[in-house]
Write a protein that binds this DNA or RNA. Sequence first.
DNA 1: TTGACAAATGACCGATTAGTCATTAGTATA
DNA 2: TATACTAATGACTAATCGGTCATTTGTCAA
Lengths: 277, 277
Amino acid sequence: MLKKQLIMEKALELFSEQGFESTSVQQITERCGISKGAFYLSFKTKDELLISMVEYYLQQFVTDVDQVVRSSLSKDIILVEFYKSIFQAFKNHAASARVFFNEKVLLTKKELFQKIIAYDLEMSKSIVYMLEQLYQDELHETKYDVMYCIKGFMKSYSELFIFSDIPLDLDQLAKSLAEKTEIIARHTTIPFITEELIQLTTKPCNEEFSQESLLELIEQHLVGSEDSIERESLELLKFQVENPTYSKPILKGLIENIRLQPDYSWVAYVIAKYFNI
Amino acid sequence: MLKKQLIMEKALELFSEQGFESTSVQQITERCGISKGAFYLSFKTKDELLISMVEYYLQQFVTDVDQVVRSSLSKDIILVEFYKSIFQAFKNHAASARVFFNEKVLLTKKELFQKIIAYDLEMSKSIVYMLEQLYQDELHETKYDVMYCIKGFMKSYSELFIFSDIPLDLDQLAKSLAEKTEIIARHTTIPFITEELIQLTTKPCNEEFSQESLLELIEQHLVGSEDSIERESLELLKFQVENPTYSKPILKGLIENIRLQPDYSWVAYVIAKYFNI
DNA sequence: TTGACAAATGACCGATTAGTCATTAGTATA
DNA sequence: TATACTAATGACTAATCGGTCATTTGTCAA
């Protein structure tokens, strides 16, 4: 478990410096101070490493965003906090941002393409949820356009973090983008992204988490963890997925128990979706 | 000259399908129906092919944008036309867009990194010029932020062209984004991208075209062309670069003579910059 | 038909790659 | 200490890569 982590970290450094294809397994193992054989004890292939990394780092990002969006922050600061957390993440994980937001070699590998699109979709959903909370019915026609604008702001301004290391005032940046978002939301009258268009773009890769795949995911997280409140909560949740008996508040509480532990935040996120919480 | 074109086209297809590193010279030559040796008659290395492609396709894009921006279109339609031309380009050249806007392996190769950043900078300048024409002094504090927003809109909405081939209403899209731009420009009060910040981000790769490198560029375009009004104009312009004697209107006329010929549009663009026209 | 030249070929080369596996080192139990 | 087991090694392989170059093909004028 720790070896995997080490490999992923060092590999991330190298990928962000040279790209995925140009980095050899040899180089990775050298930087880790392990042998080539040891690498293949942790990952079956080089591609499997990449897939694990995508899952690990994008899950973090998506759950981070979702946590801010679903927090109970007051309406007048939530946008600012949203942007602050996003760019904080870009700042702290500039390397992974470089790899996963720019190196789209990833997109030529079919399996990864699906995965990345799926994570992007999750983030889009979080943003739309935030907009619905903020503006209710005021922008039902244009909410997807506003979501696209927010994603555009992220893409454009993230360059400042990815391509240079100029010290930046995150508060000011967040305030500036929050204002822009507010302005766009309040004044846009000509929508382009319709509900129907969203359906079309997301149709092909819409596979929701089935009960089966969710149980598998939970099982994966159970095998590698020692006894704790979190583990117990997760076990209870597993039984609830198989046979729901508890009420929503209890489920919500159990999910809350594990949400804050980084190792569990993704599985918490998925379970919450499963139970519509 | 024609062979090069063929190779670049077929290579673009393959790069857009599999990425640069995963595409072998063998594959390229097979798709072209030529031998491996023939490839190396046109390009010294695989990297040189990539550099040529970046220059060829990004030059087209940048000059396209600049042409709309500097056109004499009336103020109330220029934004719409700007977006229309951009997304028309994305639609027509989805393959090259996939490669050059997404595959940032390119950015790990130092020489290409500089080039791509430079082209991006040229486009940014065009956009700022447009904003200055449109809004004069009304937004001197926020014009760089508006520019960043425009680039964000482009990045975000271009996904619709790159990752799917849903038929889209370009007019409606252009109108929608023009409105958004107008709204942002009129209402933004909290700037983030200051003049100083722009200086910082562009400082490292600021090399303007020197007289020498410009002459070299012109020479390159002269060797491969047959006699024509355009060629004569370019020759005259070459002498003017070496020893300026003509007045601005004459220079402008000569540049106009060659601007519309695709092969010359980039050199026309650079000469115009050189003479501050 | 010949000869001179350029264009095009593809077998070949050294280098590098992802992935394997016989072997060794390390550790816990008896 | 002896035994049994896993963790870790790195020399090795087969395949593929970018790039070369002796050779062949095609195209002219003489």
